[in-house]
């Protein structure tokens, strides 16, 4: 359960600048597969189409060409089988942290006692149990992002799509949540596709790293670190970690890239 197939995916945006219409090619025949229970990191320079790919996989955006299938079914819209963590949290500002988490659960049909308990459990997971009654404007950016993560995790989707989930966090919280994500993955075997700008993070969390460039696939780099990955500190010091990290770095800086 949870295999994602991205097949020949293209996306063009038409936009009007100063009265002139122009076309932006956000994705250009992108293809890769995320196997069942696999964790794949999507990495690439800003504007290369990572968010767009994730949004199409979620069903929030339609493809201009090609398709995304999840477990063989073409994605035509959103579903409870997929959960999305947005790049900018996107909490509902009039709801408390807890109510934001509850929102997704309610949409799945959960009511009453289990609803409150589940929401609380996931807030606790991201370390926000004490702030459950705060509204988004009373939370820091990183805290908001964590509520967004709790909201997506709570509905227990088979596929987790995460757009720079830990980007807004401080180093300590980020490491805590990375560990938490690994634990969740070890326990639930969710399929996870996440976007990151952090080379270390991609190596630590992913089984394979997809490097994108200008809407295309640049390279897929397997991460030879074994699971379960309990001791992240030791992994960081390992030979494989350094080698894989270097491979990704090289792919990012390969011909055509203008980002340093």
């Amino acid at each position: 359960m949870g295999e994602i197939n991205i097949v020949d995916l293209s996306k063009n945006f038409t936009l009007t600048v100063d009265g002139k219409t122009q076309t932006v090619q956000a994705l250009n025949r992108l293809s890769f597969t995320v196997r069942e229970s696999e964790v794949v990191a999507l990495i690439g320079p800003s504007g290369c189409g990572k968010t767009t790919a994730l949004r199409i996989a979620m069903g929030l955006e339609s493809a201009s060409g090609g398709k995304v299938t999840v477990d063989g079914r073409e994605v035509k819209g959103c579903g409870h089988d997929r959960g999305m963590v947005f790049q900018h949290a996107e909490l509902l500002p009039w709801l408390t942290a807890m109510q934001n988490v509850m929102f997704g659960l309610e949409m799945k049909g959960m009511r009453g006692q289990p609803l409150h308990e589940t929401a609380m459990q996931y807030l606790d997971l991201v370390g926000l149990k004490d702030s459950y009654h705060r509204r988004p404007y009373q939370l820091s950016g990183g805290m908001q992002q964590r509520v967004g993560i709790a909201r997506a995790l709570a509905i227990d989707p088979t596929v987790l799509l995460m757009d720079e989930p830990f980007g807004a966090l401080d180093a300590q919280t980020r490491e805590d949540l990375q560990e938490e994500l690994l634990k969740i993955h070890a326990r639930t075997h969710k399929t996870i596709l996440f976007v990151t700008h952090d080379l270390d993070e991609s190596v630590l969390l992913a089984d394979r790293v997809v490097v994108m460039q200008h809407g295309r696939l640049q390279e897929i780099i397997p991460v030879p670190l074994p699971r379960p990955r309990n001791d992240l500190a030791a992994l960081r010091g390992s030979q494989e970690f350094a080698e894989t990290r270097y491979k990704i770095w090289r792919a990012l800086h390969a011909a055509g890239s203008t980002v340093h």
Binding site: C78, H80, R82, G83, F86, L92, M107, K108
Partner: peptide
Amino acid sequence: SLIEVGKSFVASNTVILLRIVLPATL
């Protein structure tokens, strides 16, 4: 983006109208 939150959790049109659009428009 707020309406997309609703969509991503498979909220119906009515739910999006009453629980997202209405409070956002208040």
